[in-house]
Design a protein around this nucleic acid. Structure first.
Lengths: 305, 305
DNA sequence: CCCATTCTCTGACTAAAGTCAGAGAATGGT
DNA sequence: ACCATTCTCTGACTTTAGTCAGAGAATGGG
């Protein structure tokens, strides 16, 4: 990964101090408030089921727990009358857990305690300190979230890839003045975005696909970025830049020394990103009907001895 | 407490999001790294014993564990040859745990893993994001630490109070051009800083005294702040301001409408604090030989219906 | 319709984490 | 010298938090 250079010692140190303070302060209080009369396993489950219910397999996935264990926890919550579990109508192997009225009440209690906990962290501070703490927390939150996003090369037919591509088309449809009709656009045919003539990256946050980017590697020609998209709720995490860096590195690894792309004028954030990432605007190199701008960047090949 | 007003809902919300992200990301990784081949109870203990050893009772206190449990953990570490436990010479009921050479090596392994953990949080980020994350972490760390400091009224003869007063004198001795001789200064006699004619506050961080401030409440005269001091490692946490706010409130509660103090020109940070807290410089109201500045603040009495 | 797969559940375990009630050695104050 | 207190330890527990192997129902593709 192009970003994966080692952090320096002072940074490591500060992160460790942070971890210590936070696990002490937040961790201790967390258990104190949440686990007051119920094992935290159950409390977490109750929380994760949520107001609208959840499939058992999603619960397992979200909490990272063994299927037998989750099943047992659900039995215990059922016995307390807090939860009911029923087969999903569409696929009767899957079962859906829902909160009963009592379960909802119990969840509200947990909710209240979480608020108490949050309040107790802020309480000893004055208004100015609070503002600064909350702002710094938002920043940490945002950047740690950014750091949990994974980038993987997948086949463009993978369900996560298809999901992103559908969202991509839907968004263009909404944002382009003229709408967007995939049939009119210069779509790379599927083979162009899979090895050996290309690749397709999917970004995932907690397992959910939240962005994609394709790279065409036509033999003997510049590499070309296609269909880069980031889900609205995953924006402002530096994901676009991370895609570009990753694609640039991969293009270089495949021996290309030029990376290019085309884009529509409606995508103003993307235009800014390309420029700040070192792309230069060039003359049209294709006749994509939806493009208004064409960009190119000279990249360094893989290091040689 | 004067700072203890309720935080607003948006702040509470952000704190909760933060707690969630951090416990997921830091918590999970923490256990993953530290508990790799050893129960985390033992790992924490090994860590807490430290290079120089620790009394068993301090360990219990720091980790908040049952005495039987700690004893058992120590037995297990002893059996592995990582720790030796011996009676303290001064009080043979108390026992001190020390790391053996093997224990020190094991602790170094844990240390390395903590570094890995910290590194793994930063690894997916680019340099700019890292800088911002580390800065935000430092801010959170600092403010959460500030929030764990407690302020309590104690008798000026309490060991914690005496500790602070000794440190206070030692610091003045070092910082005043002329040195500081307590015998020449207008020392409030002990009775003046305990009820009903005064009070004495001690600030504590993790049980350690880290600051103090006295308030004289002479009958029918303005309240007067004396001997305010914050330990060097607890500075920049807004503690001075917190002392002032607390003393102001207590003075008001005792019906005073003027708060005053004198100070030496060498204490520049304190001078700035007093001014920014609303104190006005006034003519000398006493003949303290070490004072160069006298300040006064008009305060509001307790609310009346 | 058959068969491989998916999903949840149960039974049978294990390890970690902790609690509780004393026992026995040291200590400090009187 | 005596006694209450402090400190650590041991034995006997419990609860929490899992893991693992397989059984049985439902589904989907051929």
């Amino acid at each position: 990964m192009v970003h994966g250079r080692a952090a320096d010692a002072a940074q490591i140190d500060q992160v460790r101090r942070f971890n210590r303070t936070v696990t002490e302060r937040v961790g201790v209080l967390h258990d104190h408030y949440l686990g007051r009369d119920r094992p935290i396993g159950e409390a977490r489950l109750l929380w994760e089921i949520g107001e609208r219910g959840q499939d058992v397999r999603r619960l397992r996935e979200r909490l990272g727990l063994d299927s037998g264990y989750v099943s047992r926890l659900l039995r215990s919550l059922e016995a307390e009358g807090l939860v009911s579990v029923e087969p999903q109508p569409r696929d009767r192997r899957v079962r859906t857990a829902r909160l009963t009225a009592a379960g909802r009440a119990e969840r509200a209690v947990l909710d209240g305690r979480s608020n108490e906990l949050a309040g107790s962290l802020l309480a000893p501070l004055n208004a100015a300190q609070r503002d600064r703490l909350v702002a710094a927390m938002a920043e940490v939150d945002r950047l740690l979230t950014a750091a949990t996003v994974t980038l993987d090369a997948v086949d463009p037919d993978h369900p996560d890839a298809r999901h992103c591509l559908r969202s991509y088309s839907a968004e263009l449809q909404k944002r382009f003045e003229t709408g967007f009709d995939a049939a009119l656009s210069l779509l790379p045919d599927p083979g162009e975005l899979r090895p050996p003539h290309g690749l397709f990256l999917v970004a995932r946050l907690h397992g959910e696909p939240v962005g994609c980017a394709g790279l065409k590697l036509p033999p003997g020609a510049p590499a070309e970025i296609k269909r880069m998209w980031v889900a609205p709720h995953a924006r402002r995490l530096g994901l676009g830049r991370r895609f570009l860096a990753e694609l640039e590195e991969r293009a270089a690894r495949h021996g290309r020394d030029v990376l290019r792309l085309d884009t529509n004028k409606a995508l103003d954030a993307a235009l800014g990103l390309y420029r700040s990432f070192g792309f230069q605007e060039v003359a049209a190199f294709n006749d994509e009907p939806y493009a208004h701008h064409w960009f190119e960047k000279r990249i360094t090949g893989p290091l040689q001895e």
